[in-house]
Structure formats: structure tokens, C-alpha cells
């Protein structure tokens, strides 16, 4: 009951209070939109890590592919933005198909293969000039349209879109986790061999989680393309699109659903407001240090830690 109530309050704040009070402040709204973009990728990344048991260093590939597919569809084929964004997710899903042979390998191979793989798309986007515009990039990518008498291309509109997308993804994550697949995946986490013995196709399940995660990341990438209206390979496939979400997910706790989102908002805001003013170039150094510190001292993240301390307080009171 109590968690339900706090979620409703959070929703009310996110949809009501924030746009009404901060809506006119463009700087704050753009920070929030960027934090939610990072949060969305962090959520997709954590889904793959938590349910699929796979660490990915290549989600920037899915982000960039989603962005390019959606941007090109709207620019060259005139596809409506909503459909183009979904197809951007599908594009990212198709890009993840190449990773399938790696899923059969044990150990750290997936993490490393996808790290290597992320480079490919940046090279393709740079070299395939006829379609992608090469390193000059794509400009004047269509903005979000006006619908129901509300202009979604502005900061508040974009904020509402990305907030809804991320919340829908969080809901999907929850449904997957509660489904039969989720139970099988959790069993797989304990012992993959035992799970296979009782007839669960573990490679198929892992592949499905990879598809879901890639699709989500692609849609977020597509949103970002229409939000900033400009794309170039160095930006779309930048390593930051995976570094920040990883730090965020680990910081918040990647085994929870809300952890990556809370982590993303916290880490991104601190990074932009504090770290960046300390070290303008190379503030990622602090992000790296944060990641190292979290892995060493609190690998399950802050959300479970806070929850545990709340429970302890309850017990004491």
C-alpha cells in the first residue's frame, strides 16, 4: 500500500508539479530531459544485466542505430515520427541480431564482443556518406509535432514524451520480470545448467532479453534525434551513451527497476552541475572513479542500501 501511494505521489510530481513550476526554465528542463534519456538507456541496460545476466559495453550502438533509422525515415521517407521512433527500436533490434552467436559463449565473451561491435556502426555511419551524410551529419531532423493543441517540440513537450516512454519501459520491465520468462530468467541466474536441464531454452531467453533491451535503447536514441534535430556519427555513437548509463545503473542498483532511473537523474545532475565545473574536459574521470568505488564498496547500488536502512529504522522504531 505504502509503495503504491508513494508511486502515485511521484507520478503527480513528475507529470504535474515539475512541468508547472520549472516548465519555463529551459536550462533545468533540458537537464531533466537529458537525465531521462540516460535513465532510459540505464533501464534497458539494467534489464539485460539483471534478467539476462549480461554486461553490455555496446549500448551506444543501439542508441545510435535507433537515432539514425528514425531520423532517416522521417527525413527521406516522410514517415510519421511516432512510427519512425518505433522502427528505430526495430532497427536497433536487428542490429543486435549479429550478437547472437556470442550468446552461446560462456564467460566475459559477450561483454567484450559487444564492446568491439559498437565500433562497427560508427564506422558505417561515417563512411556510408550517401545515406547517412557521413561525418557532416544530418541536420533539420523533424521535430515532434503539435497534437491535441499542445506543442510537443518544446522543452516541456519533449519532457512529457521521454518521461512517458521511460515509464512505459519500466512497466514492461516489471511485467517481464513477473512473467514465467522472468521466473525462468531468475532461475538461470542461480544456475544456468540446472535451468537448462529442466527444459528452459536459456540461449533463446537471453536473446529475447537482448532484443528487448536493444529495442528500448533504439527508441530512446530515436527520441533524442528528434529532440535535438541533429545527428553526427561521433555524437550518436559516443561512448558516453553507454558509460553514463552504466554508472547510473550501478549507482542506483541495477537489480531494481527504479534504481537505474534514480541513479541516472542523480548521477547526471551531479555530473553536469558539479563535476563539469570542477574539470571541464575530462570530467568522465570522476565518473570512472565513481564506478570503481561503487563496485568495491556497494556493488548492489544505493537503492537497495537505502531500502535496507529504512527497514532497519522501522525495526528499531
Amino acid at each position: 500500500m505504502k509503495t503504491n501511494a508513494s508511486i502515485w505521489v511521484l507520478l503527480l510530481v513528475a507529470y504535474g508539479a515539475i512541468p508547472l513550476t520549472l516548465g519555463s526554465n529551459h536550462y533545468v528542463m533540458s537537464l531533466l530531459v537529458a537525465a531521462l534519456v540516460i535513465g532510459g538507456i540505464a533501464l534497458a541496460w539494467a534489464l539485460l544485466g539483471n534478467l539476462g545476466g549480461m554486461v553490455s559495453f555496446g549500448h551506444s550502438a543501439f542508441f545510435g542505430v535507433g537515432a539514425y533509422v528514425s531520423a532517416l525515415l522521417t527525413l527521406k521517407a516522410g514517415t510519421p515520427i511516432v512510427i519512425a521512433m518505433l522502427l528505430g527500436g526495430v532497427g536497433a533490434l536487428l542490429a543486435s541480431l549479429v550478437m547472437l552467436p556470442v550468446l552461446r559463449l560462456r564467460g566475459p565473451y559477450f561483454a567484450l564482443a559487444i564492446l568491439a561491435y559498437a565500433h562497427i556502426f560508427k564506422i558505417i555511419a561515417t563512411e556510408w556518406t550517401a545515406v547517412t551524410g557521413g561525418s557532416a551529419g544530418l541536420s533539420s531532423i523533424p521535430r515532434f509535432p503539435t497534437a491535441f493543441g499542445f506543442d510537443f517540440s518544446g522543452k516541456v513537450g519533449s519532457y512529457l514524451i521521454i518521461l512517458s516512454v521511460v515509464l512505459i519501459f519500466a512497466l514492461c520491465y516489471r511485467l517481464i520480470r513477473a512473467s514465467d520468462y522472468g521466473i525462468a530468467l531468475r532461475a538461470m541466474h542461480d544456475s544456468e545448467d540446472a535451468t537448462r536441464v529442466i527444459g528452459v531454452n536459456s540461449v533463446l531467453l537471453k536473446a529475447l532479453m537482448l532484443f528487448v533491451s536493444a529495442f528500448m535503447t533504439g527508441v530512446i536514441g530515436a527520441f533524442n534525434a528528434h529532440y535535438i534535430n541533429f545527428l553526427e556519427p561521433d555524437y550518436a555513437f559516443n561512448g558516453l551513451w553507454v558509460t553514463l548509463p552504466i554508472v547510473a545503473a550501478i549507482f542506483g542498483g541495477y537489480r531494481t527497476i527504479l534504481g537505474p532511473l534514480i541513479g541516472a537523474v542523480t548521477v547526471y545532475l551531479i555530473d553536469q552541475l558539479v563535476f563539469k565545473s570542477l574539470i571541464p574536459y575530462g570530467h568522465q574521470l570522476i565518473l570512472g572513479a565513481l564506478l570503481v568505488a561503487m563496485i568495491l564498496f556497494s556493488p548492489s547500488g544505493l537503492v537497495p542500501l537505502l531500502r535496507a536502512s529504512v527497514r532497519r529504522n522501522h525495526a528499531a522504531g
Binding site: 554486461v55 568522465q284 574521470l285 570512472g288 563496485i295 556493488p299
Partner: peptide, 25 residues
């Protein structure tokens, strides 16, 4: 201490970020 296979990847990834940015600085 726990889950070394997965956590060591994340840890060394973090160290790589630190080194790259330190070199750049």
C-alpha cells in the same frame, strides 16, 4: 568480494575510463 566475473569487467571498465581521461588531462 561478490560476483567477480561480472564485477571485474565493470571495475576495469571504470579504471579504463579513469586512465583515458587522466591521459587526456
Amino acid at each position: 568480494r561478490q560476483d567477480r566475473e561480472l564485477n571485474s569487467l565493470l571495475l576495469t571498465y571504470g579504471i579504463a575510463i579513469i586512465l583515458t581521461n587522466a591521459i587526456q588531462l
